[in-house]
Design a protein around this nucleic acid. Structure first.
Lengths: 132, 132
DNA sequence: TATTTAATGTTATATTATTACATAGTGTTA
DNA sequence: TAACACTATGTAATAATATAACATTAAATA
C-alpha cells in the first residue's frame, strides 16, 4: 500500500473539513472546527496539514497562511501550484493551465539551479469585485 | 516631492540594514539588529517593512516570512516578483528574466480576473547544494 | 518476534504579526 | 498663522501562526 493512498485518522478528519469548506482555511480555524472530532492541539492540525501538503491533497496559500483542497489532478505531488487571489474579497482559485505549468516547469534559471517545485500567486480583483 | 522617493527615519534604518545583510532577513532579526539605532518595538519594524514593500524597495519571500532588498530595477512597484529558493541552504535569489515577466504579466486567467501583481517562488537545490 | 517507521497525544513555548491608543511632525490651504 | 489632513512615531498589550520536546501507540517490514 502506497503511503500516498492511505490517510490516517487525523489526516482524514482534517482533509474532510478542508474539502467541505471549499475555500482557503487557516490552521486555527480548522482546529476550532474539528475539536468535536477529538482533535485538541495545534500540533495535531499542523502535522496533518504538513502531510496533506506533501502528498498534494491540499495546498498552502503562502501569502495568506491558509490551506485549500487541491482540485487539480495534474498537481498530485504539489510540485506546481498557481493561484489567483482577489485582494478585495479574498476569493482564491487554483489555476490549472497546461501552457502555464508547462512553461514554468521547464523554466531555466540563469544560475543553473534545478527546480523541483514552484508556487505562483496572482493578485488582483475578481469579476464581482471589479464591478463594485 | 513624491512619497516614493522620501524615506522616513525608521524606513531608512531598516532598509539600510536589509541591504547590508544582503540575504532574506526576518522581522524579529531586523528588530534585534537595529535596536542600537533606537528601534524598540516589532511594530516599528513591521510598519517600515510594509511601506518598503509597497514602494518596491524590498520584497517579502512569502514562503519564508523573510524580506530581501530589491535588486531588480524592473519591479519598482513590487508588482512582479520571482525568486529561486534553495531548499537546502535557503539561499534566495531574485529572478529577473524579461521573457518570464512578460509572459506572467500578460497571463490571462480563465475566470477573467484582472491581475495587478504576482509572486512566483521556485524551489530546488542550488548548484553548490546539488553537488553535496 | 524484533525492529523500524509513521502517527498520535500533550504541554509548553517560540515566532510572526496586529490592535489600540497617544503623540509628533509635515504639508496644505483657508 | 490657524485649522486641517496626512504620515509617521512610540509604546504596551495581545493575537495569530507555528514548532520543540518528550512520551506513547499503531502499522509495516524484516
Amino acid at each position: 500500500m502506497l503511503k500516498q493512498e492511505t490517510l490516517s485518522k487525523n489526516q482524514k478528519i482534517i482533509l474532510d473539513y478542508i474539502e467541505k469548506v471549499n475555500e482557503p482555511t487557516k490552521a486555527y480555524s480548522i482546529l476550532h472546527n474539528v475539536q468535536k472530532k477529538g482533535i485538541k492541539a495545534p500540533l495535531q492540525v499542523y502535522r496533518a496539514l504538513d502531510r496533506l501538503v506533501e502528498i498534494g491533497k491540499i495546498h498552502k496559500i503562502e501569502s495568506r497562511n491558509a490551506f485549500v483542497a487541491c482540485k487539480n489532478s495534474s498537481c498530485q505531488l504539489s510540485k506546481a501550484t498557481a493561484f489567483s487571489i482577489c485582494e478585495s474579497c479574498e476569493e482564491v482559485s487554483e489555476i490549472s493551465d497546461n501552457k502555464l505549468s508547462k512553461y514554468l516547469k521547464s523554466f531555466q534559471d540563469k544560475a543553473g539551479m534545478k527546480f523541483k517545485k514552484y508556487n505562483l500567486e496572482f493578485f488582483g480583483l475578481c469579476k464581482k469585485c471589479s464591478i463594485k
